[in-house]
Computed example of a mutant assay.
Amino acid sequence: MHDAPLDVARTGLLIVDLQNDFLHADGAYARGGQTSADIAALPERVLPLADSLRRKGGWVISTQFTLVPGKGGEPFISPHLKALRPFLRKGDFCPGAWGHQLVDELQPADLTVEKVAYSAFYMTRMEWVLRKAGIDTLMICGIVTNGGVASTVRDAHVRDFRTMVLSDGCAAFSPETHQRAIGDLGTVARALTCAEALALVEAA
């Protein structure tokens, strides 16, 4: 299936969690001192592929990590995340808020799906909207390679999507972690660079 011709109309660029609260200098993670040059570089690297897919009739899909607000707007935060990111607070990753949105450079997305855990398929409408849109091929990028990206890639694979992971369209908080995750995903997805993916789309 990896070698089958690409049908752009059935292909989606699945952007995992490239949101203001993760990337922007005014976002939640920057406030907590959790920044990464590799992560910050992703929107510019992914943009030519997103633009090409839009121009040729493909799809751009954004997943939005979400902290669901409870009473008084206080977010539900899982214990492991609270331990890792104690700086998260009310208003961060809140549905409809600026921090929750896809970064401006990659707007607009054709489809947007909120998620509450690593995988964009876990307890979400992701598979439903992809099937309704006729999408059977996914080029997956975003953050972090060993978390949301890896979980989403594996879940796409077991659902029989033709799955590709953009090796330089993803990042983690260390290059070593990123490279290890890309290598591990080789059994369930085709790894290719953003430039290689762009060439596939342009040639289709």
Rank of each mutant, 00 (worst) to 15 (best):
A28M: 06
Y29S: 04
Y29E: 05
I15D: 06
L18V: 15
N20A: 08
A37Y: 05
D17K: 09
L49C: 01
N20K: 09
D38L: 08
L23T: 11
E44M: 00
G27Y: 03
V46H: 05
R45V: 09
R10Y: 03
D38N: 05
A41E: 08
G27N: 02
P43Q: 01
P43V: 01
T35A: 00
V46D: 03
G27D: 04
T35H: 00
G27L: 03
T35M: 02
S36E: 07
G12M: 08
A41R: 13
L42T: 14
L14F: 13
D26V: 06
R45G: 01
L47F: 00
N20R: 11
A41T: 07
P43C: 01
D21P: 10
A37I: 06
I39G: 02
D21E: 12
T35R: 07
D26H: 14
A37M: 03
A50F: 02
G12N: 08
E44G: 07
I15M: 13
G33L: 03
A50T: 02
L23E: 10
A41N: 07
L42P: 14
A25I: 08
V16E: 11
F22I: 14
L13D: 12
Y29Q: 04
D26Q: 15
F22R: 03
R45Q: 04
D21F: 12
F22T: 06
Y29R: 02
V46S: 04
A28I: 05
H24T: 12
G32I: 11
V46C: 01
R31D: 02
Y29K: 00
D26G: 14
Q19I: 15
A25Y: 08
L42A: 12
G12Y: 08
D21H: 10
R31G: 03
A28K: 01
R10H: 13
L14Q: 11
I15F: 11
A40V: 08
